[in-house]
């Protein structure tokens, strides 16, 4: 576990390189949220802004790793390939999750300060978790591409693979709904929101588990 902590710390150090940008972005977003909170439910929009802007930043750590060819060095130390891949996934998950939580709490505080009321707290939280699952899907589709082709060479694949998977799943859903048209009436937004926490949990575990195993398989066969 100490090794995993070290590997995650290595990725965290990457962020300190642009900490000024991060602070500046937080102030700008906080201002936008404060302005928007008069008209819209900022609990959802504020959290999603933070989730997408900061939560997907862990991809940049791959870029730093690639530039310094650090994998070669790390694998020469008493570190296994499994630990390297695992730490990346744990870091990615924690980074997105903490970005969402931070965005949510900040939006909540701003909303309370500006409008002195909170609208649909639990529903907002559920929508945020659905958004978090979407980010998990994107990241979990991207990371194996990075392990396979690298950040630079795999730029196109990192965009295309999630889109391709999304269209395949949509097509599959379309076919299922054609075969079972009654399902269309059964799945409503309210019902989806009511099962959102458990749905998000299952989907996140599924995405991360599957993606981790694909990435590990790719990385374990890779000559460094």
């Amino acid at each position: 576990m100490n090794t995993i902590k070290g590997l995650m710390l290595k990725d965290l150090y990457v962020f300190k390189n642009y900490k000024k940008n991060i602070y500046f972005s937080i102030i700008v977003f906080a201002f936008i949220i404060a302005m928007a909170s008069i008209r819209i439910n900022v609990l959802v929009y504020g959290s999603i802004i933070f989730l997408f802007f900061f939560g997907m930043n862990s991809i940049s750590t791959f870029s730093y790793d690639e530039n310094s060819e650090i994998d070669k060095y790390l694998l020469s130390l008493p570190i296994t390939r499994k630990e390297i891949v695992f730490s990346k996934y744990l870091f990615t998950f924690l980074n997105s999750f903490l970005s969402l939580i931070f965005g949510f709490i900040l939006s909540l505080i701003i909303s309370l300060l500006v409008t002195h009321e909170i609208n649909s707290f639990f529903n907002s939280l559920k929508i945020c978790f659905l958004a978090f699952t979407s980010v998990s899907f994107l990241m979990c589709a991207d990371i194996p591409c990075i392990y396979k082709w690298g950040v630079e060479k795999g730029r196109m694949q990192s965009v295309l693979v999630p889109i391709l998977i999304f269209f395949l799943l949509s097509f599959l859903s379309f076919i299922i709904l054609l075969i079972f048209p009654n399902l269309y009436n059964l799945i409503t937004l309210d019902k989806l929101l009511s099962i959102a926490p458990i749905l998000c949990l299952i989907l996140n575990i599924f995405f991360y588990y599957l993606s981790f195993h694909i990435s590990y398989k790719i990385f374990s066969k890779k000559s460094i």
Binding site: G6, L9, S68, Y73, P78
Partner: peptide, 24 residues
């Protein structure tokens, strides 16, 4: 190990490297 072409990210300083190595 000393590798000619591979090491930690250039944004790290000596304290950071010490912090990482004691985890490894």
């Amino acid at each position: 190990i000393v590798l000619d072409d591979s090491f930690f990210s250039p944004i790290l300083n000596v304290h950071d490297i010490n912090n990482l190595m004691r985890h490894f």
